[in-house]
Computed example of a mutant assay.
Amino acid sequence: MLAFAPAALLFVFFCASVREDRRRFRNAVLLGLTFISLAMALLFQLTHLPDTLARIVAVAVFLVPAVGVVALACFLVANGVTMVRKEGRSPGNLLSLLAGLAIFAVLALAVVAMASGSTKVAGMTAMVIMIAVYVSFLFVCFLAYAYLYGRIRVRGDVDYVVMLGSGLICGDRVPPLLASRLRKGMRIYVAQCARGGTAPLLLPSGGKGSNEKVAEARAMADWLIAEGVPADHVVLENRSRTTEENLTFSRTIMEEGKADYRCVVVTNNFHAFRAAMMARKVGVNGQVLGSPTAAYFWPSATIREFVAVFVEHKGVNLTVCGTLFAFGVLLTLLAG
């Protein structure tokens, strides 16, 4: 049973970290390390398991991930084609397609390395695979924990419901993506009022872009009022240009209204975890909830969020990738 001790210890650290603050990226990494340690422990126990159970464990640890990688690559390429067809060829819309092609490229490189028999090619391939595995590990951690974070429920009343802007159509109209956030915020507002709590203030957040006729917050407020929210229950934050400014300026408004405020922040589900990390960074006292997003839009948007998180932690990530690159070069030189 000692083989399971690292997994148990990592799980304890994960639970303690989540209890301290749900909005940390380290929670995602600890969760991933817990599952890897558990898989390794199960492999160590194979010789002690009945044959049927041992085969099931071996398939789960080796075959399922291998098949999953190919299936994921196929899905991402298909989704990328759908994104281009429905949303156009902007760089952000190409992310799922590029990610799928990158997976196929790494698999093809591995096949070529095995077929060539060249130790130098094998060394360089090992370097690429190690970096790909590291990035993939972080992505899976991000994906799994973002899913768990999206399942949280905020208990008790809140003083504010902050709704993050996402751009307007024709300069003054709320698009479907933003309307999804506003509906989520309205449901929180209505539910709190229905259970007899004090009506929270709805705080739409977003400034006026260069191609917009009005501030996003103004268009969002008009949408909410048209849906039946009393105008005096809506407070605007209309200066921000980025998510960080959304949260920073909204925090100032909330603190001025009530020093010990409690809030929830609403965005789309693909953006919720990164927005939560940013909310923690700027000192917002509240969790982030996600609203539904069109299924075809979700993969590319999630990859974009991961890339942003990866860049935000570029110090440690570049150090690890650089170390793996140097190790790969060393293997290639030794092979020569």
Rank of each mutant, 00 (worst) to 15 (best):
A73H: 01
R26N: 09
A301N: 08
R183I: 05
I152P: 06
C170F: 10
S210F: 09
V70S: 07
P200L: 03
V235A: 06
E245P: 04
S37C: 15
R151S: 09
Y160P: 03
G68Q: 13
L247S: 07
L168I: 00
G150Q: 07
L324E: 10
R55F: 12
I36S: 13
V235E: 03
C141M: 15
G80N: 07
T319L: 15
S166I: 08
A73V: 01
G167I: 02
T125Y: 00
A326K: 12
A105E: 11
S116K: 01
Q287L: 14
L182K: 00
S166R: 01
V288P: 03
L101D: 11
V288C: 07
E245M: 03
T119G: 14
S136P: 07
R304A: 12
A179E: 10
A105R: 08
V229D: 06
M130Y: 09
L203C: 03
L30K: 13
V288R: 06
T267Q: 01
I225C: 09
V214G: 08
A221P: 05
R187D: 14
I253G: 08
H233L: 06
F142I: 08
K258F: 00
A326T: 11
V70H: 09
V284I: 12
L101T: 11
V161E: 00
G290K: 03
A115Q: 07
V84F: 08
V158K: 02
L31G: 15
L138Q: 06
C321A: 15
Y134W: 00
A226F: 11
T302C: 12
V133N: 07
P6D: 05
L76G: 01
I36Q: 07
I103W: 12
V309P: 02
V18K: 05
L10M: 10
F14S: 04
A335Y: 10
R304E: 11
S180G: 14
T319G: 15
A108S: 14
V69Q: 10
V320M: 12
A295T: 07
A66V: 13
L101F: 11
L94W: 12
R280N: 03
V282L: 04
R251G: 03
M277E: 15
V316A: 13
F11K: 02
L148Y: 12
T332Q: 02
V84Q: 10
V316N: 07
H233E: 05
A294N: 13
F249A: 08
G336P: 04
I169R: 10
H233F: 05
G100A: 10
G290E: 08
Q287S: 14
L331R: 12
T248P: 04
A144M: 15
A5P: 02
A132P: 02
C141H: 13
R239H: 13
A54E: 05
C141E: 13
N246H: 05
R251K: 11
V77F: 02
I103T: 11
K213G: 04
F104I: 06
R89S: 15
T293P: 02
Q192H: 01
G209D: 07
A279I: 00
V59H: 02
G88E: 06
R173H: 11
R274M: 12
A191M: 00
A58M: 09
V57E: 03
Y261K: 02
T198H: 07
A41D: 11
P299D: 05
